[in-house]
């Protein structure tokens, strides 16, 4: 699924690999197509409209076992909005209908009347922050790697279970549910969140973290070649400042 400018995430992964001479192959896995999950190092799962989400959700159940096995085997996954919701225990619509998820993340989402549409700024979970700092090969050391910035647009409210860790803490915006200040979920190398934007080009430190994790699974710990990210940081910092200073 991808309804929402989430294409930028794929473009960013591909480009940042190519600029480093790393070869990338992309496959589109569609409905009804068998998933040989062990072939992939990185999965991307975007958002969709409600109807599409129901169709994709049914199909995902068929693929669940293999996908979860791949994640347990250190594959990297990034899911956003609708994709994030389908990877949870279940989604309860406003009308009370339950759509089963695949419980990759111990969390559930409940439809609400409130539409959360705004810039979303979060502070990354401290442990994950440290891992990102160890991996991101900055040319300039001055950039602050602690935040993620994006744009959220959802009415589902996500509540994390006991076994789940959030991706970060909300500074501005609603995040998972506009109540407990959490945003997103992390399970091993699988990440779910409400950050459109697209997320990865706006947050090159996180993009590189995902790339290095995907490579690590196949080749062991690696050091990424640094790239000139001054433009990306300028855009990131400008937006972070603007969102922080909004009332």
């Amino acid at each position: 699924m991808n309804t929402y400018g989430d294409n930028g995430n794929i473009i960013t992964i591909v480009k940042r690999c190519q600029w480093r001479g790393i070869d990338v192959k992309i496959s589109n896995v569609s409905i009804g197509q068998p998933l040989s999950a062990s072939d992939f190092d990185f999965f991307f799962f975007g958002g969709g409209q409600d109807k599409t989400q129901i169709i994709v959700g049914k199909d995902l159940i068929q693929k669940a076992k293999k996908l979860i096995a791949a994640i347990n085997n250190k594959a990297v996954l990034l899911s956003i909005c609708g994709g994030y919701q389908l990877l949870q225990n279940y989604f309860k619509t406003k009308e009370g209908e339950i759509i089963n998820g695949i419980s990759l993340f111990d969390a559930y989402t409940a439809g609400s009347k409130e539409r959360m549409i705004q810039d979303l700024l979060i502070e990354i979970d401290p442990e994950l922050q440290n891992e990102i700092k160890n991996v991101y090969p900055a040319i300039e050391q001055s950039n602050c790697l602690t935040n993620l910035i994006g744009f959220e647009n959802h009415s589902g409210k996500t509540y994390l279970g006991k076994n789940s860790k959030a991706l970060g803490r909300v500074i501005k915006g609603a995040g998972n549910n506009n109540e407990d200040h959490t945003e997103g979920a992390v399970y091993k190398n699988a990440f779910g969140c409400y950050l459109h934007g697209s997320l990865l080009p706006k947050n090159s430190h996180f993009a590189d973290y995902l790339i290095s994790k995907a490579l690590e699974r196949r080749y062991g710990p690696i050091k990424l070649k640094p790239l000139d990210d001054s433009l990306e940081w300028k855009a990131h910092n400008w937006m972070v400042d603007r969102v922080r200073n909004q009332g």
Partner: peptide, 9 residues
């Protein structure tokens, strides 16, 4: 539109 993610599509 306050959301500019469409530039990536």
């Amino acid at each position: 539109g306050k959301d500019i993610s469409w530039i990536w599509d």
